[in-house]
């Protein structure tokens, strides 16, 4: 260090203006124009998207590793040699035992979840208008649809685990009915494993969402948000709830349709 140790302003800094810098990223700003809470919810959801992305990627890889049934759908039979056609597995409906109603129940579940998303966004909209009664009304509808979805999920799992009367003849000569983590009547063991893990993980998210909504309803009723001056909490929980709906859209396509 040959130069002077005193701090002399250099040529560049002598022209420095004392006026504060006001660019978007110069600090003291909200470059994203979103509050801290909403931004953090977005980042959490992004990380959650990676979790579900990992699940669906694993599903895609494992499915492509297994054989494909090459015949037409009406000739299809359950076997560990090929991946099952979803509409042959998910063809039951509560109260209509023994009837072949492919994907009917999952269509109903999809509609329930889309409806819950709509009532959620209506609650957010009511929050913007500081309309406490409306927020309460739409939160209750969302809780109702969420609970309906969870009940449907429970039925779907029961049906999947229980299986049908026909079952499938296994290699050791026994007949397998329904599914568990080690063996199932529908096809390769990993098919049932992925079903349990993916729909289970999604169901857990819906359950957490319902818990948050119930808490949010209580806080709304107590006037917490009214006193706070805004209903941002409803918005943040809304973001989470729509994300859960979004995940279902992907699960629906990749597990039930494709």
């Amino acid at each position: 260090m040959a130069h002077s140790t005193t701090l002399e302003p250099t040529a560049a800094t002598t022209t420095y203006s004392d006026a504060p810098r006001t660019g978007t990223w110069d600090g003291g700003n909200e470059p994203f124009k979103a509050s801290y809470g909403k931004l953090m919810m977005w980042f959490f959801l992004l990380s959650d998207a990676f979790t579900f992305g990992a699940f669906l990627t694993a599903y895609g890889m494992i499915r492509h590793k297994h054989g494909v049934f090459t015949g037409t759908a009406d000739k299809f039979f359950f076997s560990t040699a090929h991946w099952p056609i979803p509409e042959k597995v998910f063809n039951g409906f509560p109260g209509l035992h023994g009837m072949d109603l492919p994907l009917a129940f999952v269509a109903l579940m999809t509609m329930i979840l889309i409806f819950s998303s709509v009532t959620m966004v209506l609650a957010v909209e009511a929050g913007h208008r500081m309309d406490k009664a409306d927020v309460q009304k739409w939160l209750l509808w969302t809780i109702l649809f969420g609970a309906m979805f969870l009940s449907s999920q429970a039925w779907e799992w029961t049906h999947f685990i229980g299986g049908d009367e026909k079952g499938t003849l296994m290699a050791d000569g026994s007949r397998m009915f329904g599914a568990n983590l080690a063996v199932n009547q529908y096809g390769p063991p990993l098919f049932a494993d992925l079903f349990f893990f993916i729909t289970g993980f999604h169901g857990t998210h819906v359950f957490s969402g319902v818990c948050l909504l119930v808490w949010c309803f209580i806080a709304t009723t107590n006037g917490t948000f009214e006193k706070r001056g805004h209903y941002e909490m409803v918005e943040k929980i809304g973001l989470y709830w729509h994300f859960v709906d979004l995940v279902w859209v992907f699960v629906f396509t990749f597990f039930y349709l494709v």
Binding site: T57, A58, G60, M61, I62, R63, H64, K65, G67
Partner: peptide, 9 residues
């Protein structure tokens, strides 16, 4: 990974 899966299969 889907490509990888096909290849393994």
């Amino acid at each position: 990974l889907v490509t990888e899966g096909s290849s393994i299969g």
